[in-house]
Design a protein around this nucleic acid. Structure first.
Length: 428
RNA sequence: GCGGCUAUAGUUCAGUGGCAGAACACCGGACUGUGGCUCCGGGUGUCGUGGGUUCGACCCCCACUAGCCGCCCCA
């Protein structure tokens, strides 16, 4: 009988580390609310078709990284259905947008989510099979202004503010435009043409990419192929006038609010649905996984899912990596101390101690509670680890109604009437 | 999915083909109403799992599992 363990690529998050997760989540909700985003919670699993059609049948995510199973039919009349743990959340959000006819409001929908996603990849540090993402989507009918470059810039500015507010410094915003739905195929065709005569000189990886996904050749980190990659056609030369103007307007808006960025004409994203603006925020010190978050515009996604025309832009941020980045900049966090530890000095005083704890907790204090079975020394040892102060409840205290309170930091010990205790603990 | 490195106490790690170790942590005591500092005592372990070689394996060999690093890919 072997001990059961968390399955490969999954893990438990324990206190005090979870306090950091809570802080990031609270910052997310606070900052995003200022931009008038609302939270959406979609199911953790969906019809497999949603991801096949939305994310792209040929992407690695769909072709080899999804947790998919056949949900069995329970009745003759019911068909079995292929279901999949969500590998990302944008497709689910767009599905919900369509399903609930959110476009009929005529308003832009600004939605964010925080939740686990699932991909069956080889685990590494900051890369898990159940991983957490924070993301947001701005989506709506064109009449609501959903195609405007202002929306792109607003989302990017929000992210810059968010990272700043979290205290993450040293990030870099990298962005590019991959053009509209007709620009992209034209460019891919040109890439294939340019690669055909030279690809045999390239690395094995790049030869394969040249066949299967020419855009990825641009991402190549192979230094020996650098010269060839540098001479390939640029996406910027294949954008139509509207896409060029869109990108220029995004950059102008970023300039206007002082958000720093780098344009990288080779930044392409793996998902099929991206159009026009694509971006990443990168951070050093994350090893091979240096992207903190990535996103882009997806003007055609709703229609790919048989929905109305609903252009949008969004991003997804790897929370596991964000936490790693935050932890790298600080010492290991200690758990939060309670305001007081209540120590009954005999078992007969346990009930009374709980009543006291209840009063203090109702006053908003963070209180931990010992046990009268503990020797007093043990109560002090435990109290010293968990709380800033210890409140003794012994025979004397019960009789007099005056409690003994000791401050662990200063060693100072005082007597406080029970009725004044909550106030006294709050004030110190 | 591919390649490499690693796996010993709660934690960080040392270790030798012949009795399982250190530091910190933890437990008990010095101390039956006082923590931290000190002193005394205690090892709390399937040496990742399963096989193999050997008189004998924590150590050598094989497989598996897991973690880490890189690749593919990606947040």
């Amino acid at each position: 009988m072997t001990l059961l363990k968390a399955v490969r690529g999954t893990r438990d998050l324990l206190p005090p580390e979870t306090e950091l997760w809570e802080r990031v989540e609270a910052t997310t909700r606070r900052v995003f609310a200022r931009y008038n985003f609302g939270e959406i919670r979609t199911p953790i699993f969906e019809d497999t078709q949603l991801f096949a059609r939305g994310v792209g049948e040929e992407t690695d995510i769909v072709s080899k990284e999804m947790y998919t199973w056949e949900d069995r039919a329970r009745a003759q009349s019911e068909k079995s259905q292929s279901l999949t743990l969500r590998p990302e959340n944008t497709a689910g959000v767009v599905r919900a947008y369509i399903e609930h006819k959110m476009g009929e409001t005529g308003l832009l929908q600004k939605l964010y989510y925080i939740g686990p996603q699932f991909r069956r990849e080889r685990p590494q540090k900051g890369r898990y099979r159940q991983f957490w993402q924070i993301g947001a989507e701005v989506i709506g009918p064109p009449s609501a202004g959903s195609e405007s470059p202002l929306r792109d810039a607003e989302v990017l500015e929000m992210l810059a503010s968010f990272l700043d507010e979290l205290g993450i410094s040293g990030w870099t915003l990298v962005l590019n435009s991959v053009g509209c739905s007709t620009d992209r195929p034209r460019y891919v065709a040109a890439l294939r043409e340019a690669l055909a005569p030279v690809k045999h000189q390239m690395s094995e990886d790049n030869q394969r990419r040249a066949e299967t996904n020419p855009l990825r050749v641009l991402d190549s980190k192979d230094p020996s192929d650098e010269a060839i990659v540098a001479n390939l056609p640029k996406i910027a030369d294949y954008l139509d006038e509207a896409s060029k103007a869109h990108f220029a307007a995004v950059l102008a808006a970023l300039d206007a609010c002082g958000v720093q960025y780098e344009v990288n004409p080779r930044l392409v994203r793996g998902l099929d649905y991206y159009t026009r603006t694509t971006f990443e925020f990168t951070h050093g010190g994350l090893g091979a996984q240096n992207a903190l978050l990535g996103g882009g515009r997806y003007d055609g996604l709703s229609e790919m899912l048989d929905g109305p025309k609903a252009p949008g832009i969004g991003f997804a941020m790897g929370l596991d990596r964000l936490i790693l980045t935050l932890q790298a900049g600080q010492a290991e966090s200690a758990p939060t101390l309670a305001d007081a530890f209540i120590a009954p000095l005999s078992e007969s005083l346990n009930a009374e101690a709980l009543a006291l704890a209840r009063d203090l907790r109702r006053a908003g204090l963070r209180i931990d509670l010992g046990d009268g079975a503990f020797r007093i020394k043990k109560s002090f040892e435990i109290g010293n680890k968990l709380a800033r102060k210890i409140v003794l409840l012994g025979e004397d205290e019960q009789r007099s109604g005056i409690l003994t309170v000791k401050n662990f930091a200063t060693g100072e010990q005082t007597k406080i009437p029970r009725g004044e205790l909550a106030q006294a603990l709050q004030n110190s």
